[in-house]
Design a protein around this nucleic acid. Structure first.
Lengths: 190, 190
DNA sequence: TGTACATCAGTGAACGCGCGTTCACTGATGTAC
DNA sequence: TGTACATCAGTGAACGCGCGTTCACTGATGTAC
């Protein structure tokens, strides 16, 4: 076995422990002590893999954000620009949030931590720019502003669904109605 | 002078200091030490007026939320239910946020602090219920869900304006467009 | 009016605690020869 | 194959620090008589 591997199992253990801890509590409560205890490693090991707690939190947020973005990209990659693509991407986002407990702390409370605030802002802006094309295809005069507000609604819907622990059709329907589209049924009655 | 007054100037001093500190930093950074130093009182004085730091944070959030709600109520009180009332109330909210620096930490980052999370949730629900009537007047099938998403958009607009330090017409226009209304010009061209 | 006492906002030194971070060390494994 | 050395993830006791909270005390002011 090589001395250096591309993968770092202990590092991943620490990130996984962070995800698990995020499930029931805010990021503000995530101390290095709790973290290493949950990961089952010594305290010093934490600093073998992360230069500081702040950098760990950024890495954790990034890790999570990336995997969610990947799912969304997969879901929409074969669709042309427009409302259907936006709806499909949003559904992937909502389902992705629901399937991961802990996302709440990671994506929503993260903004309040000075350490990750910049990271969150940068990621959001990237996201807005990347998907603004959908609104421009829909004929909105300022697609980026529209996208920003739409993301806020999608995030609120995700929050509501995570609080309830299941899909909230009322919120999703309101979301599509604000968008001005009625998504096609998957299995239309005939 | 009576021994007990209804007003507690030192208590107010502490709350004011909190508002001032919130202007440049998150609530997570607001320690009792910083607070009493900013208010110019001894550390023990803090505990004369507040039983704990958590209760102080709740009081601070409530203080702020109340004054903003009062402004909104004033702005809409003579208007009948419907879109115009909603637009007017939202404008009062956005202007109120812009005029107070520090609102960002108090209204947006507060959710991440376990101590105030419940308070924030309760206030938001109250707010949704209270104004959901506007959406029901507009014929929405689930007014409360619609209101919840609309508030999320209004909050995002407020955030954008606070980041920029001034009104962002692009965001406001997108907000009205999502609502499906075009607000009347105050001074229409003829 | 004068005196003794009660009240209570305000004080600040002191407390224990948990935090993030450091560092000398261990031990398993790879490399040189 | 055997030996000496290098590498480096992992360890855990120890560190200093700032935190939230306590408490015996002060002193100004109100009350009783």
């Amino acid at each position: 076995m090589k001395r250096r591997e591309a993968t770092h199992p202990t590092r991943d253990q620490l990130l996984e422990a962070g995800l698990a801890l995020a499930e029931n509590g805010s990021l503000a409560r995530m101390s290095v002590n709790t973290l290493v205890q949950a990961a089952g490693v010594a305290k010093g090991t934490f600093y073998v893999h992360f230069p500081s707690q702040d950098e760990y939190l950024v890495a954790l947020h990034r890790h999570f954000h990336d995997s969610l973005m990947r799912e969304i990209s997969m879901a929409v990659k074969s669709l042309p620009r427009g409302a259907a693509r936006l709806v499909r991407g949003t559904e992937a986002y909502l389902d992705g949030c629901l399937s991961r407990r802990g996302v709440k702390a990671l994506l929503f409370d993260a903004r309040a931590l000075p350490a990750v605030a910049d990271e969150v802002r940068a990621r959001n802006r990237m996201f807005h720019t990347h998907f603004a094309g959908e609104f421009s295809a829909l004929g909105w005069p300022d697609p980026e502003a529209a996208m920003r507000l739409f993301v806020a609604m999608a995030a609120e819907t995700a929050l509501g669904e995570m609080e309830a622990g299941r899909v909230q059709p009322a919120l999703r329907k309101a979301l599509w109605r604000f968008l001005g589209v009625v998504p096609k049924r998957r299995k239309p009655r005939h």
